[in-house]
Design a binder for these strands. Structure first.
Lengths: 103, 103
DNA sequence: TTGACATGCAACCAAATGGTTGCATATTAA
DNA sequence: TTAATATGCAACCATTTGGTTGCATGTCAA
């Protein structure tokens, strides 16, 4: 969970997820082609995404294919965001009332 | 959006959100009491949460009350996570098929 | 088998991050 | 008015982060 949040914090890594979402199973070189940095930098980002289980890889000869794994993101939506979202309206109305009371 | 992800990346800040979720409208000192670090460190974290619009503050004399704002989290759920979640089952079955094909 | 290509590993570096301490300011209460 | 309390601001520091370069390894194809 912690690793997922940390992984999602970086815009480059979110872009990598976007790229994989657009075309799944891309090789490292293919992903690098769309990124404005060295291959090694992209490798590090992908390692962090893999660590967070957001990306799954599949060795294919000398190539490595990368697949988006939506499960951890789904878990955030269900477990963590849901907690706040559940009380969203309550919290908003509480805040509104409180602010109005202060005027 | 970027600021929200960055803000959520830190466990201390998620704990602050948890604390506010448990009891909304806490003052800085109240929040500090539950955190194992200096007041100034907590202040910085709260500033980042405010910057990300995850926390709203209300000056009350010499005190400052902090309120959880669930809207940005809700936006993540709707805009960003939804995008991947929508194709969750597809992606999973794709991956499964692919892995089976490789065996 | 050998050259080209895809990826892996490690050292290194600048900048950002998360924390500290010290002092300043503003408000409440005696 | 003055002491205590609540917060703000700034300098400073260690570690992490995001990037680089250089070289090693493994696989495909001629």
């Amino acid at each position: 969970m912690d690793a997922v949040f940390r992984a999602l914090a970086d815009p480059t890594r979110r872009q990598l997820l976007d790229n994989l979402h657009a075309r799944n199973g891309q090789t490292l070189n293919a992903l690098c082609a769309e990124m404005d940095m060295t291959r090694q930098a992209v490798t590090k980002h992908l390692a962090i995404l893999e660590e967070a289980n957001l990306v799954t890889t599949l060795r294919k000869g000398r190539e490595k294919e990368h697949y988006l794994n939506p499960v951890p993101i789904n878990e955030i939506a269900e477990r963590w965001i849901g907690k706040f979202e559940r009380h969203r309206l309550d919290a908003l109305s509480d805040l509104k009332k409180r602010l109005e009371r202060e005027d």
